[in-house]
């Protein structure tokens, strides 16, 4: 399996994404803003559509459009203070509407499917370089703002009072989510990216009593699911997005059952 170059790329990309996605996903879970993953993944699909239409690398398109909507989201949230979900719905619908229009202008549907459900054979050398170029600063930012992000997730008011730049960090968080979605698109696909952001954290929350363990366990769960999902995708010839998320759901159910027995 590893003698194939496309599998080597799939594993490298998959391992990078499986470490970064839960690290940032855990913050949006704790901020009770998990839906942002769904919303921005729709924006990523629009970016892919624009990329394919304009003949540029769809990952570039996805990153650019997702970051644009992540910034717009923060602005809209301020307009609907206390009703953040309205801003999420507006961005989701806007992305879907434009995606529908742009996709109707694209002739080939095969490449579109790869971006919706992921593909292990489609990761090009350029994609891998782009994933690495985005992953390194993303991981650096997550580590640099780790304690500040935890503070605003736990108690935004107290963080604000003691001088933490809450507005800036919320913006950073949105942009980080956008970046993770952009680079995860190839492996998991636009429809299932938010599962990679949320599911590892959902499993880890069941067995963690502190934030450090939440981060550790969610990475382990994510890494295991992504690696196993890619292997399953190779041998069973199924979409990696589907296999990865199915494994995540299976782990979640197992943890629920085992926790129930312990109780």
């Amino acid at each position: 399996m590893l003698k194939y170059t496309f599998m080597q790329r799939a594993f490298i990309a998959g391992i990078i994404i499986s470490i970064i996605a839960p690290l940032i996903g855990n913050y949006i879970i704790l901020k009770r803003f998990s839906q942002i993953g769904d919303t921005l993944s729709h924006s990523a699909i629009l970016g892919v559509a624009l990329g394919l239409l304009l003949g540029i690398n769809p990952l570039f398109g996805a990153l650019a459009v997702t970051i644009f909507f992540a910034l717009a989201l923060e602005r809209l949230r301020r307009c609907f203070k206390g009703f953040a979900e309205i801003s999420l719905s507006i961005i989701t619908m806007t992305s879907l509407a434009f995606s529908a229009i742009v996709f109707s202008r694209i002739k080939s549907s095969a490449s579109v499917m790869n971006y919706l459900f992921g593909s292990i054979i489609a990761i090009s050398k350029m994609d891998l370089i782009l994933i690495l170029m985005v992953a390194i600063p993303t991981l650096t930012l997550i580590l640099l703002f780790r304690k500040e992000l935890l503070y605003i997730c736990f108690d935004e008011d107290s963080a604000l009072v003691s001088g933490i730049n809450v507005k800036f960090l919320n913006l950073i968080l949105n942009v980080l989510v956008a970046l993770v979605i952009g680079i995860s698109l190839r492996i998991v696909g636009g429809f299932l990216i938010s599962a990679l952001l949320v599911m590892p954290g959902a499993v880890a929350m069941k067995i963690s009593s502190n934030f450090s363990n939440l981060q550790r366990y969610s990475i382990l769960v994510s890494l295991f699911s992504v690696v196993l999902g890619i292997i399953a995708s190779f041998y069973l010839n199924i979409s990696p997005g589907g296999s990865i998320v199915s494994i995540l759901i299976f782990i979640y159910l197992m943890v629920e059952v085992l926790k129930g027995r312990v109780r």
Binding site: K147, Y151, S158, A159, G163, I164, N210
Partner: peptide, 9 residues
Amino acid sequence: ETVLLGLVP
């Protein structure tokens, strides 16, 4: 971890 948050600023 909660108490340490007080030192973040």
